[in-house]
Design a protein around this nucleic acid. Structure first.
Lengths: 97, 97
DNA sequence: CGGTATCCTTCTTGATACTG
DNA sequence: CAGTATCAAGAAGGATACCG
């Protein structure tokens, strides 16, 4: 619930699955619409739960890449069945602006 | 996301899977800890999304039973794989009171 | 029995600015 | 580049009381 109930964790895992080892700002761009606050917070929590690993190259300027752990890969793979269900059944509701 | 991100919808579907056709207060008791507000709200939304159907017997006193639709059954079945993942990987964190 | 109505708290997310 | 700090806004959930 902690993972699936939050707004950005699934997108983060999804885009790391599509391209593993993305850097902080790269990930931010590929996800789109996420703020620094949420990206950092979500990554830290995913790391604490062992779904994502953080590789800090300790250079100047900083360079940090994020990777799915085996557990993270298993998790996002498991979501696949649910995505299929969603794709079959979801209806697109009118968005109000 | 609308379904899995809310606190009570999965428990509701789960307990309806264990025993279909439960009545409002029966469901409230089997779930435990849910308020009228949330139970009603969640049921209405699940109904609107076609996962649950509501059968009103139109008697006095009122009698209403809730059932999983085929779509609801498929959904909660699909969650099974994810539950397995959770069971394998989740750790129980200390609760602070 | 099966809900509504109202108010309140808390938790999550976002906006903006700044830094080593 | 990869973040932090601070503050504000919004959404979600809960408490309590009441109703046909």
């Amino acid at each position: 619930m902690k993972i699936i109930g939050s707004k950005w964790k699934i997108p983060i895992l999804w885009y790391l699955m599509l391209k593993d080892g993305q850097h902080y700002n790269e990930l931010k761009r590929t996800i789109g619409g996420i703020t620094n606050t949420m990206l950092t917070k979500s990554l830290r929590e995913l790391e604490a739960d062992g779904l994502v690993s953080r590789h800090d190259y300790a250079t100047v300027p900083p360079s940090v890449s994020y990777h799915l752990t085996d557990m993270g890969k298993k998790f996002i793979g498991t979501m696949g069945e649910l995505f299929d269900w969603g794709r079959e059944h979801m209806t697109f509701e009118k968005e109000q602006n």
